[in-house]
């Protein structure tokens, strides 16, 4: 399998006046193309810090990080911006859609920053991405005219529109109710099944269970790196599974 992410002794220290905050104290792992990974851990353990580093939004204090063969820690701000644009699709807990724009305009935004794509093609590709997340009939809706789940779908479509190598999501279901969370999680599973590498941060076991590998962070250190199937010693009963797993998974298991 092809290595997509190669993290070695990655550390991030925040300087708050005289105090140093070691948010990340040196973690190492690889993630291969097509994996579906959950980063879990208690609040303040450094999950978002790690995610921001993986997402090229932040630079590490120490260690190295290679994404798709490129040494991220050596890149300047301009190249980091290009990396975020081309290689990475972000999904945020707060959706972060532009309130003034339609769903279509929001999804087309990364294509504009990529450059060299005609306006027509941008709209077509944005429409296709919205189609892919099941919002083909909501192209001209503005964020306030959409439900939370639909807004997160628009955000996912925006993350997909540039065909990124990597889909990153920091607590993507944190602002959604259980049923909607399950829908969104189903969407991530589908995308992963179609070959997309997905890394998400969560503190909900139900969400983590949908993934296939767990990275557990505690106090800035990697505590566990295990396949999801081995993470919970006692396997839940089929009925428990049905209740816990997202909607689409249920259909596949039920009969």
């Amino acid at each position: 399998m092809q290595t997509m992410i190669k993290v070695r002794d990655l550390a991030r220290t925040y300087q708050m006046g005289d105090i140093e905050i070691h948010a990340l104290r040196g973690v190492s792992f690889d993630i291969h193309r097509g994996e579906f990974v959950a980063i879990i851990g208690p609040s303040g353990s450094g999950k978002s810090t790690l995610m921001n580093l993986i997402g090229c939004l932040d630079a590490p204090s120490e260690g190295s990080y290679e994404l798709d063969g490129l040494p991220v820690e050596l890149l300047d701000t301009e190249l980091l911006a290009a990396m975020r644009n081309r290689k990475i699709g972000f999904v945020f807990q707060q959706f972060h859609l532009l309130a003034r724009g339609t769903a279509l305009a929001n999804v087309a935004l990364p294509l504009a920053y990529r450059g060299g794509i005609s306006s027509n093609e941008r709209m077509e590709r944005a429409a296709a991405a919205l189609e892919r997340v099941g919002l083909g009939n909501r192209l001209d809706h503005r964020p306030h005219q959409l439900s939370g789940g639909q807004q997160q779908r628009v955000a996912i479509a925006r993350a997909l529109v540039n065909d990124p190598a990597l889909l990153l999501a920091d607590e993507p279901t944190g602002a959604l109710d259980t049923a909607t969370s399950a829908e969104i999680l189903g969407l991530f599973s589908d995308l992963n099944r179609s070959g997309m590498t997905v890394v998400l941060v969560t503190h909900e076991p139900d969400v983590a269970r949908a993934t296939r590998r767990l990275l557990e962070i505690r106090d800035g250190r990697l505590m566990r790196d295990v396949p999801t199937s081995e993470a919970w010693a006692s396997q839940p009963t089929p009925t428990q599974r049905r209740r816990r797993l997202p909607v689409r998974q249920q259909w596949r298991i039920a009969p």
Binding site: A81, A82, R84, N85, R86, H96, L98, P110, R114, R158
Partner: peptide
């Protein structure tokens, strides 16, 4: 501010 942050996260450079 959040819009600016988002644009940067989506690939906007400082010059943009």
């Amino acid at each position: 501010t959040r819009e600016i942050g988002l644009r940067k996260a989506l690939g906007a450079k400082e010059g943009d």
